[in-house]
């Protein structure tokens, strides 16, 4: 066995086992912390597939940002440690059937399909990515900047109105 295969397999096992734990744990706090392991495992897989930039971004944004947000949201919610209240498992049979059908169908096609295996190589891609962003993907790159601008304005609009209306509070609001 190649060292690369061992790495891929062990990272895959870690990712899948932690993902299974997240799904089956009744305690949301444990799930949230276990998400850390899953996300890091996925980042490792990205790195092995020579997507080093994506791996770094995965750590920065998902592990560093979104996960912290989820943990805070979980901890600020009441009664979160009682599994029966936070995630009552409803319709287990139906979900099981749907899940198995979906997994089986996808698995069959992924298994049978002749995927292109030629992409395995360790080569940093960040330079190529930078070039692509300013060449082939120049237009999407610029459109994203407009989207961010307009989205920012929208977010401010929704957040600001309650402040802006302070000088004309109605009776209900004064309480």
């Amino acid at each position: 066995m190649d060292i690369k295969e061992i790495l891929v397999l062990s990272l895959g096992v870690i990712t899948i086992l932690s993902a299974v734990y997240i799904s089956f744990s009744r305690n949301l706090i444990y799930s949230a912390f276990m998400l850390l392991v899953t996300l890091c495992g996925v980042a490792g897989l990205y790195g092995l597939l020579s997507a080093d930039f994506l791996a770094g971004i995965q750590i920065l944004i998902y592990v560093g940002g979104i996960l912290i947000l989820i943990v805070f949201a979980v901890m600020l919610t009441q009664n979160i440690s009682e599994g029966k209240k936070s995630n009552p498992s409803r319709f287990p049979l139906v979900s099981l059937v749907i899940g198995i059908v979906f997994l089986g169908g996808m698995g069959y096609f992924i298994w049978r399909f002749p995927w292109n295996n030629g992409y395995f190589s360790f080569k940093p891609i960040t330079t190529d990515l930078g070039n692509a962003l300013l060449k082939e993907y120049l237009l999407p790159f610029e459109v994203i900047s407009i989207l961010l601008l307009v989205g920012l304005i929208g977010a401010l609009t929704i957040a600001r109105v309650s402040l802006g209306n302070k000088n004309k509070l109605t009776k209900d609001d004064e309480i």
Partner: peptide, 22 residues
């Protein structure tokens, strides 16, 4: 890439325009 970007462009702004009445 453009398709997804454009779809989100319209979607995100539509959410905001729905919720703009506070």
């Amino acid at each position: 890439v453009m398709i997804y970007l454009a779809l989100e462009f319209v979607s995100i702004l539509s959410y905001i325009m729905t919720g703009i009445r506070v």
